[in-house]
């Protein structure tokens, strides 16, 4: 355990580190600029990526995948809707089953 004299000695030798506010402001602006430039890179990368679709082979492949994906999703949705319709038809208090 340190004595009060040791503590006083340590406190005398301690120098608080205060950051320069000018550096702080500069750092904030630099970070903002980096963030802005990243957005630019993302847009550039996207536009470069979009250009791939001008190649017929890639465009056709993407179109076929989109077509099959859409049909697949539509099939799943229609089956879920059919199941829901069947369950509603079993409920005597639903308007649909009452129409039968």
């Amino acid at each position: 355990m340190n004595s009060p004299d040791d503590l006083s000695f340590l406190l005398q030798g301690w120098q608080p580190e205060v950051t320069d506010t000018r550096d702080f402001n500069r750092g904030v602006w630099m970070r903002l600029e980096v963030a802005e430039s990243r957005k630019g890179i993302d847009l550039t990368a996207f536009l470069a990526w979009v250009q791939y679709f001008t190649r017929p082979r890639i465009a056709v492949t993407a179109a076929v995948l989109a077509l099959f994906g859409g049909v697949f999703l539509g099939t799943i949705q229609s089956r879920a809707a059919d199941e829901d319709q069947y369950l509603r038809s079993l409920n005597p208090y639903s308007a649909q089953s009452h129409q039968r």
Partner: peptide
Amino acid sequence: KGLLILLGIVLLAVAAQQISTCCFRSTPL
């Protein structure tokens, strides 16, 4: 041109999904 083609592909997927949702519907039985 690339953007237009991409838009067309997205529209194609949406149209395929909508049409198949309607066409594949069946009765409860």
